[in-house]
């Protein structure tokens, strides 16, 4: 059996970096408490990681062979790209990267909405009339999906961008020291 310690260690470091950057930003921009920002951002990052892993497991058999080989090289040899010249600037990769980025931001926004809605008293959240027929759970889910806090969404996009830059920076550092 092969334990991919390198990729697991890298993910742990990437998560720690992302959580630090994003929770700091949330505290500064949205004036969340330190505890709230760390807890919510940690949960959002962990769930997003799980969703991305599940997506990888579900799709890796269907991916084009060259992408599959890049992933295998990255996980087994930590060498998806051997040199800076080796990084393909393929339009499909750029589009895929942007789509993944937007999807990750959207998932994080909704997870934060759900967490925020689930931890606050329902009276504070709803400006609409609470109908008797709605259970608290259904109402909370409905409220979570109807949240549209522009400032928070912007912060999520910015935080995620900074995290991606930091993680890419780590990858380049690894490449340099290889």
């Amino acid at each position: 059996m092969i334990l991919p310690i390198s990729i697991i260690a890298f993910q742990i470091i990437a998560l720690l970096v992302s959580i630090t950057i994003e929770s700091f930003l949330f505290r500064k921009q949205l004036h969340w408490t330190r505890q709230d920002s760390v807890q919510y951002v940690t949960a959002a990052n962990l769930i997003t990681s799980v969703i991305l892993w599940l997506f990888l497991f579900g799709s890796e058999g269907q991916l084009p062979q060259w992408i599959r080989f890049r992933i295998i090289s990255l996980i087994l040899f930590s060498s998806s790209f051997e040199s800076f010249d080796d990084i393909p600037i393929d339009p499909w990769i750029v589009i895929g990267f942007i789509l993944t980025y937007v999807l990750v931001c959207f998932i994080k926004i909704k997870i934060l909405d759900i967490l925020k809605v689930s931890t606050q008293p329902i009276e504070d959240l709803s400006e609409q009339d609470i109908t008797e027929s709605d259970s608290t759970f259904v109402l909370r889910v409905r409220l979570a999906f109807s949240q549209d806090d522009r400032e928070k969404n912007k912060t999520v996009f910015l935080g995620n961008l900074l995290s991606v830059i930091a993680v890419l920076g780590l990858m380049f550092l690894q490449l340099l020291f290889n």
Binding site: M1, I2, L3, P4, I7, I8, A43, L46, I47, S49, V50, W53, L54, F57, E60, I75, L76
Partner: peptide, 18 residues
Amino acid sequence: LSTQALISCWLQLLFVIQ
């Protein structure tokens, strides 16, 4: 729960590598 789910993903990765 999400930490545990992530650990499950890592364990699943062992079998994918296999």
